[in-house]
């Protein structure tokens, strides 16, 4: 594996080929906010909060740091006017779904996001897919998954699998960026009303 020299926030950084911008930044102690990223899981790029501005060949681009592989002489800006504006908007949208989420509130404060900009639609879920992917990739049980699409997309537990696997695991609960209780609620709902589930 060759080494690659790139610039993050004005600092020269030397990292291994094949790493993503996020990993490169983390290895040098530069913080990029993430919500759907987990080191044990494949990068997913759902939340887009890790958006950074990269400069290649004289023009800048907005990319998801958790997915974008490092390149020679890449210039990365983890905080710029554009990036901050995008993160602020994303947070305002997500906070309309999960108003009480601690992780979101902290970030909202940092980026000056207005919590009441959009009408509240508390689904308590930002569809980051951490629980779904953890169950599929790490535990290989597939007890929890997405259903439906678009604005109605949501996370449900499959009652038949959940009844067997979930009581002794619950490892997805603490992963949830909005509220661990949300997963608990969904699990209980699936087990108590198995036929009511789609």
């Amino acid at each position: 594996m060759g080494e690659i020299l790139l610039q993050i926030d004005g600092r020269e950084v030397k990292v291994e080929e094949g790493m993503t911008i996020l990993e490169a930044a983390q290895s040098t102690g530069i913080n990029i906010p993430t919500l759907c990223y987990h080191e044990k899981l494949e990068p997913y790029g759902a939340c887009r909060i890790c958006t950074v501005e990269v400069e290649t060949g004289g023009r800048t681009n907005l990319v998801a740091a958790c997915l974008y592989p490092v390149q020679e002489n890449l210039v990365v800006m983890t905080r710029s006017e554009k990036v901050d504006k995008i993160r602020k908007m994303l947070l305002e949208l997500m906070i309309a779904h999960a108003p009480e989420a601690g992780a979101l509130q902290e970030l909202a404060q940092e980026y000056g996001a207005n919590k009441d900009r959009f009408e509240k639609e508390p689904s308590f879920c930002i569809l980051c897919g951490l629980c779904v992917r953890y169950c599929a990739e790490v535990k290989k049980k597939n007890a929890v998954g997405f259903v439906d699409r678009g604005g109605r997309r949501e996370v449900i537990f499959i009652p038949e699998i959940a009844a067997k696997e979930c009581w002794n695991c619950k490892e997805c609960f603490p992963l949830c960026p909005t509220e661990a209780l949300q997963a608990g609620y969904l699990l209980t709902e699936a087990l108590a009303f198995p036929s009511g589930n789609r």
Binding site: V132, N142, A143, V144, G145, D148, I156, I158, I161, R198
Partner: peptide, 18 residues
Amino acid sequence: VPLTRIRHITTFYKAFSL
């Protein structure tokens, strides 16, 4: 194929009815 993926697909496409 895990049941979760089948649920995901069958609720995604309108051609399927559960």
